[in-house]
Amino acid sequence: MSNSLSADDVRKVATLARLKLTDVEIELLSTQLSCVLDYVAQLEEVDTENVEPMAHAVERTNVFRDDEPRDSLPSADALANAPKTDGRFYLVPPILEGG
């Protein structure tokens, strides 16, 4: 596997990450991420045959609570930090053509 990321690769990942980057940022990230990927490639030399992945430091199963109704955040509080609302809902740009 190649460890270098071309400017086009960086653009592709930026689209997945929903990040608008400038051309200067793309060039810089192509160099910097390639360098980091080169570094992390050393993991390939570790024998991980039959090793279970460890997703959490304290391994536990699902934590359940009793299904009892309780107060939730009042909608005014939930909306208080939103960039755009109509007082009842979050407002977003139109997502349907002609919407």
Partner: peptide, 15 residues
């Protein structure tokens, strides 16, 4: 598999 999963396996070896 090559990056994230591999890292989680190495994490167990570190632990």
């Amino acid at each position: 598999d090559a990056y994230y999963l591999k890292a989680l396996k190495v994490r167990r070896l570190i632990r």
